[in-house]
Design a protein around this nucleic acid. Structure first.
Length: 906
RNA sequence: GCAGGGGUAGCGAAGCGGUCAAACGCGUAAGGCUUAGGACCUUAUGGCUUAGGCCUUCGAGGGUUCAAAUCCCUCCUCCUGCACCA
């Protein structure tokens, strides 16, 4: 018995690969090329099995393509900017105990950790550990081409070149842009910087300027079209109000709004406190119709939301309705019947309905508001109470109302966060209107159309992801591509702005083709002329240098990217920018050809995690189980779903390695001795090769490993158990199997291949040829007949509670086989019983029995001679399993059917 | 709101017009091995059935077909993403 020792020969094969430079391919025009990439990670901690999932999938594909004879390039680099990395660095600077403990667990010494207050140092440290772990796990990466985005100076030149090209094409524009902002840290407040309010975003509100004398009372609303239905204004006595000067007007607003407004309006002057009580009971003028509306108190008015003044439209807003009805009893002299301005057919009294359902509870009223808003927005028509808006659908009415208000100089707008946002620093997030932000114009219609038409032609695995990509592009808006401060490449035309990390990493795969050459060129000589020559073939003023020619050749040979492998979190952002930038900048033959998208790998082995104190790192896993076994993660899923992964699967792999190793040992002791099951094993390999080919090419690695490895081992075990001992067959089978599973298990397969007399699987490019393994449907069917007969025997033994000393297996007569095969033949064209009967020359009980379940008629027939021979050959095998003498004979018993012999237990 | 993907045994998950009571894995039960535990091996795991059989299921309802988990329609329900952030 062989024992699989993890790691026994991994170093040896790593050395072979590195000496032969197997993973450092050059331009070889004799071979077809394949260029595969995985997006740059932001190294802010140790690589773990969950991350490795994506890289392993890429590696499996890369090795598969090498086996198929392609010249495969797979480089890898890093990105050192990005919020999470900066965040970790800042947290370490602040001596955050959680952050420190994460670093300790990652094995970082205190002296190293001190340096991490510079995110660059952290990136350098962890990218080294990433690289080391990837190497240990057998990633076939060309490390000569490694560089660091936003840090390698040559790359920054490349980004500048790219941006100038985009700008030349009119794809970069400037504009104002609302951003959720932390006022204390004075930075944008991204989702991961938030203690509360993930996913909340800026929302544009209309401001309608009501007036009291010369004072403006600005109310914020999402529903300006209801302004004709206003009965009053609400303010809240418990809120502090201030008077501010804005655009030459005096506005009364909440203290909070006065602060927030500074982030969205220019030239605001705070003119001090305002006693809101002085306005209560006074009137405000509705700009659209001059109606005088009372200003009243209501405690639902929130100081943190908008201006602190609310327009009350009882018939269309549940809160207003609820409080307005109270006025009826509290101050009947002020009450008047509210006007309904929107009709929804089928809902005569929508508001009463909604409020009744809410039961007067604040939560219920919120729910009711949502209900009314939805109903009226979708199905509402503005009625004759709403002046010039009457007859319009609510959506159109909204636009018209805004126009009318603008015409009356009574309109403004304000961005408010869609929900409460709190920064990690504790202060409340607000919306800042960033002025003159730079955008990439992804909204460009022509660009979108070109991209979408092209994506239809791309290979996207799994295919469901394609619809998502297309839809994301369809909905694409302009993307803010720069930020003030931080790390990265400054905008070439305005150094105050830094290109943000998703926008400087859209076409860097092109840089991989030249990164190992350009690094030896003085960065001062790296300019747009160089890049234009290398990437576009534009003539240079002087004759291009040798290095430049080399780069041009590399780019022309390797580009485009054939496959980009990534987890699904990048699907609707980075991958979209990746495609759109290629479409914008390069000719179509340089656009990416394929995407492979996977879900998350969830390591769910809690016990293991507990005993180890933390999630398993790559080096620990590889040391314990061996790189090959760990790489089984590649087979976790076929698609984009998240997968729970249990480490116990790993030992299942190890055991099967040993079965293969045993089979190789046996080869020394056996000769050539063919029998029926040899036909079976060869036929299985024929099927396995075809299945593997299809599954690997579509990145269905779960299926690939299943059919080539787990089933492959099962076949092998069956063959050996059944007494198969033909050296040629066995050798040929193992030889095929080793090739099929090499992409997933590179080291053990190289080792076994060597034992079989091979040299180096990747060098041999030895993807097996299905044609050299004979497909044989008859033997496949007869073996399953044998297997099901054995199942039947054990079933019978159980039912009869008899321990037979002899089992007689009666094979059906020739006539039945003929009938059976003719039914099978007829069923190839149709499985409709009526039609089969029409085609058949014979009829009778046996035919009717078969036709009772037409869908169970197999695709291929049976052969009586083979059946007899097979059962005779495997007599010993059957005997061993049941501990009884076996006799095979012919039988004319009615129970004996082709593929289903009569069984007698004696 | 917009978009994408689901609902199959105790659980995870395959199947996507016809050998489907439903692969495979986990869990559970019995047995073997073992000083014991773990690991491993065998068997069972919808219901009924003392001869290899029968019956009923794939979120709900309806339709197309000789044949539907698979195709079409309606409904219920769950998950994911929505940008200056990787």
């Amino acid at each position: 018995m062989s024992t699989y020792k993890p790691g026994e020969f991994e170093d040896k094969w790593e050395k072979v690969y590195s000496e032969k430079k197997t993973f450092e391919p050059g331009v070889d025009t004799k071979k077809k090329k394949f260029f595969i990439t995985v997006p740059v990670p932001y190294p802010d901690g140790r690589l773990h099995l969950g991350h490795l999932y994506t890289w392993t999938r890429a590696d499996v594909y890369a090795r598969f393509m090498r086996m198929k004879g392609f010249n495969v390039l797979w480089p890898q680099s890093w990105h050192f900017t990005g919020g999470p990395m900066m965040g970790m660095s800042i947290r370490l600077k602040n001596k955050d105990p959680v952050a420190i403990s994460i670093m300790q667990k990652a094995g970082v010494s205190p002296s190293e950790m001190e340096k991490f207050t510079d995110p660059l140092e952290m990136g350098l440290y962890f990218s080294k550990t990433f690289k080391n772990d990837m190497q240990k796990a057998g990633m076939s990466i060309d490390w000569r081409r490694e560089f660091i985005l936003s840090y390698t100076p040559h790359y920054s030149k490349f980004v500048e070149w790219q941006l100038r090209k985009l700008k030349d094409k009119g794809l970069i524009v400037q504009g104002n842009h609302p951003v959720v902002w932390c006022p204390r840290e004075d930075t944008p407040l991204g989702d991961h910087d938030r203690a509360e309010g993930e996913g909340e975003s800026p929302m544009l509100f209309s401001i309608i300027k009501f007036k009291h004398d010369d004072i403006v009372l600005p109310v914020a609303t999402l529903r300006p079209e209801t302004v004709f239905g206003a009965t009053n204004l609400w303010v809240n006595k418990q809120i502090s109000y201030r008077i501010i000067q804005i655009r030459g007007e005096k506005w009364i607003v909440s203290q909070e709004f006065a602060k927030k407004a500074e982030y969205q309006f220019k030239d605001i002057k705070d003119q001090g406190e305002f006693d809101i009580g002085s306005l209560l009971g006074k009137n405000a003028v509705n700009p659209v119709n001059g109606e005088e509306l009372p200003i009243l108190n209501a405690d639902f008015v929130d100081k943190d939301v908008n201006t602190g003044l609310v327009m009350s439209v009882p018939m269309h807003a549940p809160f207003d309705y609820f409080y307005w009805e109270k006025i009826k009893t509290e101050s009947p002299e002020l009450y008047r019947k509210p006007k309904k301005v929107i009709d929804v057919s089928g809902h005569e009294s929508l508001i009463e309905e909604a409020v009744k359902k809410a039961g007067g509870q604040a939560n219920g009223l919120k729910e009711a508001t949502r209900f009314v808003y939805k109903k009226e927005t979708n199905d509402g028509i503005l009625n004759s109470n709403s002046g010039e808006l009457s007859g319009l659908a609510v959506k159109q009415g909204k636009e018209k109302a805004i126009d009318i208000l603008k015409g009356l100089s009574a309109y403004d707008s304000f961005y408010e966060v869609s929900g409460k946002v709190v920064c990690r620093c504790g202060s409340r997030g607000l919306v800042k209107l960033v002025e003159n932000q730079w955008f990439i114009r992804y909204s460009d219609k022509e660009l979108k159309e070109k991209a979408i038409a092209y994506i239809e032609k791309m290979n996207i695995f799994p295919p469901e992801a394609k619809a998502q990509v297309i839809n994301s592009i369809y909905n694409m808006e302009d993307k803010a591509m720069a930020r003030r401060g931080g790390q990265g490449t400054p905008l070439p035309w305005n150094k105050d702005w830094i290109v943000e990390p998703l926008s400087d990493s859209t076409i860097y795969m092109a840089f991989y083709t030249i990164s190992h050459i350009i690094k030896d060129i003085d960065v001062k000589e790296v300019n747009d002329e160089l890049f234009d020559y290398v990437f576009f073939g534009v003539d240079t003023k002087k004759k291009p240098s040798k290095k430049m020619e080399d780069m041009r050749r590399e780019f022309e040979y390797w580009y485009p990217v054939n496959l980009r492998v990534t987890a699904k979190d990048l699907l609707t952002n980075h991958l979209i920018f990746f495609i759109l930038n290629h479409v914008a900048l390069f000719p179509e033959d340089k656009w990416p050809r394929g995407l492979g998208v996977n879900g998350w790998l969830i390591i769910n082995d809690i016990k293991m995690a507990k005993s180890k104190g933390n999630a398993l790192t790559i080096s620990e896993s590889v040391e314990e189980h061996g790189a090959d076994a760990v790489r089984l993660i590649a087979a976790a899923s076929n698609g984009i779903d998240d997968v729970k992964w249990s480490l116990s699967d790993i030992s299942a792999a190890k055991q099967r390695f040993e079965v293969m190793m045993d089979a190789v040992e046996i080869l020394n002791d056996i000769d050539n001795k063919k029998s029926e099951i040899d036909r079976f094993l060869m036929s299985r390999m024929n099927y396995m090769i075809k299945a593997a080919e299809e599954n690997y090419s579509e990145m269905k690695f779960r299926n690939a490993v299943f059919s080539s490895f787990f089933e492959g081992i099962d076949n092998l075990k069956f063959y050996l158990d059944a007494g198969g001992r033909d050296e040629e067959t066995l050798r040929k089978y193992i030889n095929g199997m080793v090739r099929l599973i090499h992409p997933v298990f590179p080291f053990i397969t190289e080792e076994i291949n060597k034992k079989l007399g091979g040299k180096n699987l990747l060098e041999e490019s030895g993807w097996p040829d299905a044609g050299s393994y004979k497909q044989d449907e008859v033997i496949e069917n007869e073996v399953s007949a044998l297997k099901s007969t054995m199942e039947d025997i054990s079933k019978l033994i159980k039912i009869t509670e008899k321990k037979p000393s002899k089992i007689v297996i009666g094979i059906a007569g020739k006539e039945l086989f003929d009938v059976y095969n003719s039914v099978v033949e007829a069923a190839k064209k149709t499985q409709n019983p009526k039609e089969i009967r029409g085609v058949l020359k014979t009829s009778g009980e046996f035919v009717e029995k078969l036709l009772k379940n037409p869908n169970r008629i197999p695709k291929n027939g049976l052969d009586r001679e083979t059946e007899i021979k097979l059962f005779e050959e495997l007599k010993g095998y059957i005997k061993r399993l049941f501990g009884a003498e076996i006799e095979i004979k012919e039988s004319d018993d009615e129970k004996a059917a082709p593929g289903r012999p009569k069984i007698d237990l004696l």
